[in-house]
Design a protein around this nucleic acid. Sequence first.
DNA 1: CACTAATTCACTCAGTTAATCACAAAAACC
DNA 2: GGTTTTTGTGATTAACTGAGTGAATTAGTG
Lengths: 266, 266
Amino acid sequence: MSIDPVDDPRSVAIEQLEQFGLSAYAARTFVALTSLGIGTAKDVSNISDVPRTRVYDAVDELHERGLVDIQQSSPKQFWVVSADTTCRKFEQEVQRRTDILTTALRELGPAEPKQEQRGVWTVDGQPAVTDRVLEFIRTADEEVVYMTVEELLTEDIIDELTDAEDRGVSIRLAGISPEVQDLIRDRIPQAELFDTLWLWSDTPAGRVMMADESETLVSVLVNGKDASPSDPRSETAIWGSGETNSLVAVLRAIFTWRLEDGKLAD
Amino acid sequence: MSIDPVDDPRSVAIEQLEQFGLSAYAARTFVALTSLGIGTAKDVSNISDVPRTRVYDAVDELHERGLVDIQQSSPKQFWVVSADTTCRKFEQEVQRRTDILTTALRELGPAEPKQEQRGVWTVDGQPAVTDRVLEFIRTADEEVVYMTVEELLTEDIIDELTDAEDRGVSIRLAGISPEVQDLIRDRIPQAELFDTLWLWSDTPAGRVMMADESETLVSVLVNGKDASPSDPRSETAIWGSGETNSLVAVLRAIFTWRLEDGKLAD
DNA sequence: CACTAATTCACTCAGTTAATCACAAAAACC
DNA sequence: GGTTTTTGTGATTAACTGAGTGAATTAGTG
C-alpha cells in the first residue's frame, strides 16, 4: 500500500495527541487543521475521516485547550495554532504535571531504605533493567562490580559510573573489548578492568553486577537465537538486596574469590 | 471531613498518574506501594481501595512500565521504584513523545503564513489569550503596541517584549502604574510608555494590542463583578489579522491618532 | 490429607466515546 | 420569493473500555 502507518506523520501525530489526552476526533481534527491552517467543518471532514457533524465538538474540545480558535461566521472557520506553539504548550503542561506528581510522591514516600533480605525480584525489558542498574550505582558508596556485554555498557551507565568514581567508589569492570577498554580508561581512570570470569561468549549473555557487596543483579538476553532480533524488550533480569540475600551471597562469593584469585587482592 | 481531596497527596498523585495513562487501579496501587515500599496484594488492598483480586493486574501494568518489580513467591511481593526515579522516567517518556509529535507536526504543517483578512477569531481563557499575545509579539518585526491592566503584564510577556526589542522592534506600552513603569524602563529601556488612551478603570478591562499595524487583539475580563472571583478562565479575547481586517483597521486608526496627537509623532 | 490463603480467570455492569441520523437554521440559487 | 443546498445542533444507538465481583484453581500450612 502507499502509506505505511508507522511512517505517516499524520498517524504518528494523531497517536501522540491521543496519548496527550485528546479524543480520537479531536486529534484527527487537529492534524487536519494543521495541514490546512484555516478551514471549515467541511474541509476538515474531507481530509480527515471525521464525520462532518462531529467536527464541531472536536473543535470545541480543541478550543477549550487553547489549540484552535473559532470564527463565528457561517460557515464557521477554524484556526489552528502553529506546530511550535502547540508543542511548547504540551511541554509546559507536562512539566507542570510532573512537578505536581513529584511533590505529591515525595510527601508520600517514606523513602525508608527498603532492606529486602530474602527476596529476588524480576525486571523485564532493557530500559527497566538499566534503571535498576543505574539506581544501584547511584546508591553505592564503596564498590561497584559490573560485568557486561558491550552493547549494554551504554552512555548513561558510563556517566553514572563516572559520578560514582568521583564519590570515591571503586569501580571494577569486565567483559569489554580492548578498544572500549581504552575509552573506559579515559573516562573512568581509576576503574579496574578485569577479564571476564567464566565462559561468557556462547551464552545469551547479559550483565552481572554487584554494588557494595549487598546489591546484585543478573540479566540475560532472551532472544539469543530466535525471537525477533530487534525486540528491545528482550532482556530479563533478577536482582536481590541485603547482606543475607541468597543471590547476593552467591555473587559475592564468586566475585571475591575470582577477584582475589585471578587478579589482585586490592 | 478529615481529608480534603485536593490537598491529600494520595489523591493528587493518583490524579496525575491517571493523566499519564495509568488505569485507576494501577495508579492507586502505585501510590499504595509508594508508601509501603514493599508489599503484598493484601497490603496494597488494605490501604488503597483496590480489590485484592485486581491488584495483580494493576501490578502487571506497572511492571510493564518498569515501575514495579515482582517477587515470584507466595504470597507475591511487589517492589516499587523510588519517587525520584519514577518522575525522571515520566519526564523522559514525555520528552520523547513531545519530540515525536513535534517532528510529525513539522512534516505536516505547511506553516504558510495564514493571512486571514476578514475574520475575527475568538479565544477564551487567560492562558490561551496570553499565547496569542506572545505569538504576535514573537512574529512582530517593527512595532508592538500593548495596553493592559497590570495583572496581565506577566513575566512571560515582558520576556517576549525584551526579545522583540533586541530585534529592533519598537515597543509602546500603556496602562501601567508608576511603580511598574520603573521596572519596565529597566527591563526594556527603549520602550515608549504612554498614558492609557481612554477611560479604562471602570470597565472590565483586559488588554488591547497591535503588532506591525496588521495583527490586533482585544480582550475583556468577564468576571468583573459577579462570577467566581478567582476563575482563571475569565478572560475572553477576539483577534484579527491582515492589513484589511476590520478590527485591525479600527485599532490602527485609534492608535495612530492618539499616539500622534496625545504624545509624540515618533 | 484437609484446610486456608493466595492467585487467576471469567463475567457483569457502568460510563465513555465513536458513529449515525434527524432536524432546524441559514445561505445560496434560481 | 420560493426552492435547494449547505451548515449547525441535538438526540440516539452501538461499541468499547475499565471498574468491580465472584467463582475456580493453585499453592502453603498444619
